[in-house]
């Protein structure tokens, strides 16, 4: 479903992604790991359509379409979901209004009628339960005054509401305690199907105890320097990244 070829991207003239190749097929879970500053969030943002970053080289196909021909909202409506590393607070926009607008805009894109209010509220209730999101949070402004953990859970809640085909979860685990981590992972696993795929970006192997990846990639300095199966994550946990970094320079 997603095919990234030799992707280069930069910001303010500084190259951050230096030739990424990645293939993701339906039903797969990919983990991207790597030290801080290696470009994981940049990759996620570029895939979601953030204009801040300039794509200087390479191609990305999503279900056969050139991804860069689509606006961020079109990508979302075509099933790409980015779980933000740092979810944004939007004072004055209620969660309900935000989700209702998002759901209906995506339905419009697919040529469907807007959802009725009662159906929408039912859906909200169901999904809130799925991720054990405090009901009161849904009545507040988007992420405003949410704790770090609540923000992350809210990302998964939105994912559950929008039922994407390709979810890119950027450090959804960081800042979560073990219970919250389990709830988040549980949410992801419940939404998993043979038709959709997930890219989990993480720092820690611990999330991968709950969300079992088919592939693990190490991103370092704008490049994927190593790919493997789920065992690679364990190896990284044990040995850190240094042995790979050295390997790169050889």
């Amino acid at each position: 479903m997603l095919s990234i070829k030799n992707l280069h991207a930069s910001i303010e003239g500084k190259e951050i992604l230096k030739g990424i190749d990645l293939e993701v097929k339906p039903g797969e879970v990919h983990a991207i790991m790597g030290p801080n500053g290696s470009g994981k969030s940049t990759l996620a943002s570029v895939l979601a359509g953030r204009e801040l970053f300039e794509v200087t080289e390479g191609k990305v196909k999503y279900f056969g379409k050139d991804l860069f021909d689509l606006s961020p909202e079109e990508r979302a409506s075509e099933g790409i979901f980015l779980g933000f590393q740092y979810p944004i607070e939007i004072p004055g926009v209620s969660m309900v209004n935000f989700m209702k607008t998002a759901v209906n805009e995506q339905r419009k894109h697919k040529g469907l009628e807007p959802m009725s209010s009662s159906d929408f509220l039912k859906l909200m209730r169901e999904k809130k339960e799925l991720v054990e999101l405090d009901a009161a949070l849904a009545n507040r402004s988007v992420n405003e005054g949410f704790s770090g953990g609540e923000k992350k859970r809210n990302e998964i809640f939105q994912m559950a509401m929008l039922e994407p085909k390709l979810s890119i979860l950027d450090e959804t685990d960081s800042g979560l305690d073990i219970d919250a981590l389990r709830i988040v992972a549980n949410g992801v696993n419940k939404l998993k199907s043979a038709d959709n795929a997930t890219i989990v970006i993480t720092h820690y192997q611990r999330l991968l105890d709950y969300i079992v990846p088919d592939y693990v990639h190490v991103l370092y300095n704008g490049k994927i320097i190593k790919s493997g199966g789920k065992d690679l994550a364990l190896e990284l946990e044990e040995k850190g990244y240094d042995w790979l970094k050295k390997g790169e320079t050889v």
Partner: peptide, 13 residues
């Protein structure tokens, strides 16, 4: 940032 967040959920610019 807020604008991108909304758009990333499918809401037109």
């Amino acid at each position: 940032d807020a604008l991108f967040y909304l758009r990333a959920r499918g809401i037109k610019k």
